[in-house]
Write a protein that binds this DNA or RNA. Structure first.
Lengths: 257, 257
DNA sequence: CGTAATTTGTACGTATGTATG
DNA sequence: TCATACATACGTACAAATTAC
């Protein structure tokens, strides 16, 4: 029994926190991959040389923060991307506060190697002439095009993504592709909202008769250690449907509030 | 010692959940008001006839969900509105992903009794000719007007709010006024985003030379039992600054991830 | 199909550490 | 310095879900 936590006496850092960090470290290094089962509480308690209670606290914290999924009777598993964690998506397109969410369908328009676009290289921590892929997609609802989405990815991280079959892009969300094929789960993301006059590409792709105001959403998706994965610009036609943010609810123990 | 939890044996509902509900119930009824100190763990354990551990679990859940604030050595206190819970606000106006948040200042433009505006009465669960107050405010940054914000409140809930001094509206956020003066904390809110051509009021108040695209944010703020408090339309000029959503982080125990 | 083994969930009791006033 | 109240930590027991036999 090799206790990994050599000593905590004399320190003010709680043991469960050290365990959290240790587990998270293994996940970040890919030692424990998304979907994988990690050792049970009792086993971890032995490994770390602490009580099951301390391991439980650590695992509950990591579960609450979305890094682990715990299932009674089965075990504890490494979670994937943030975005897919909740059953429902964070954003939906609705016509009113009361109406239900409508599912959008995706169509891949183009995937192309590009390089050196000024502010985007900065977001992706690439040099000014950095090699990127540009993924252009259209989101439609009932035959009408609602969103033009343009994603930029570092070629370094997503080798040969342009060789993948189109189907990969249309049957799954992009973050799922990152996670499954490239082992890069999305851990957090930032968003910026603004309103713009529709640029020409948007007028074409969204089949607008003229330049109308569009909701522009810029998103930066990051994985572990704040490494940027994707910078995305979405132009949303909010004439009929508006972008709705679900009220956030966190789960705590199994019986949340 | 009058045990409030008569029995849980034979049921599948955990004790800590019943305690949660009981505490939350007292808060909703105003028995324990925002800011007030609630009995310590040991005392509650005696009241409910359970162990301190069960009370702790219940209180941690309520703390994580934002209904309670716990301070080591002081006690547990009833929290106020969601919006002010985190130190930083959920939304900020920035020019770029990297830039820091800029503090906006508020100016009350007008507060007026109005009635029967079609979809808004529905949002506020008022009859079609319902009596409301309309609060018009301008948010500025460095002398330039960024946001025109129009709030609608039910007169029934906010009696004589139009008699309050202007200062009340300009020195504090609106949710703070709701909570402090009317004892109505904001428990959750929904938002809808869209892009619109600036309407005439916005052109005037935001001193626009012409009609430009504006980010329109509709918000519905709710208190306990999903009672609507405020329906707000914000027109944001995103020419220079964009609406930025902070990456969400939840706290679990004191030493979060 | 029932039974046992595994694993997490709930619950109790106790002891000690640490922040607050 | 001391009492109070929450935080951390241990150990134990049983319940409930899942899987394998």
């Amino acid at each position: 029994m090799s206790h990994e936590l050599v000593k905590t006496k004399g320190t003010q850092i709680p043991r469960y926190y050290l365990i959290q960090r240790s587990i998270l470290n293994r996940i970040e290094k890919g030692e424990w991959a998304p979907g994988e089962k990690i050792p049970p509480e009792k086993e971890l308690a032995a490994i770390f040389g602490v009580s099951v209670g301390s391991v439980k606290t650590a695992m509950l914290n990591l579960s609450n923060s979305g890094f682990l999924n715990r299932v009674q009777g089965k075990g504890t598993f490494v979670a994937g991307s943030v975005i897919g964690r909740d059953r429902r998506r964070l954003y939906n397109f609705v016509s009113d506060f009361e109406t239900q969410n409508e599912p959008l369908s995706v169509k891949l328009q183009e995937i192309k190697a590009v390089e050196g676009i000024a502010p985007i290289c900065g977001y992706l921590t690439l040099p000014p002439n950095g090699q990127m892929f540009r993924v252009t997609r259209i989101f439609t609802l009932h035959e009408s095009s609602i969103i033009l989405s343009i994603s930029y990815l570092a070629q370094r991280l997503f080798k040969d993504i342009d060789k993948l079959p189109r189907d990969f892009f249309e049957s799954n969300p992009l973050y799922k592709l990152f996670e499954d094929t490239y082992k890069l789960p999305t851990i957090r993301y930032q968003e910026m909202f603004s309103a713009v006059q529709a640029p020409v590409e948007a007028v074409n792709f969204l089949q607008l008769s003229e330049s109308v105001p569009l909701l522009k959403v810029e998103m930066l998706a990051l994985t572990f250690k704040n490494v940027p994965l994707e910078y995305r610009i979405s132009y949303c036609n909010t004439k009929d449907l508006k972008l709705f943010r679900m009220p956030f609810r966190m789960k705590t123990h199994r019986w949340g509030v």
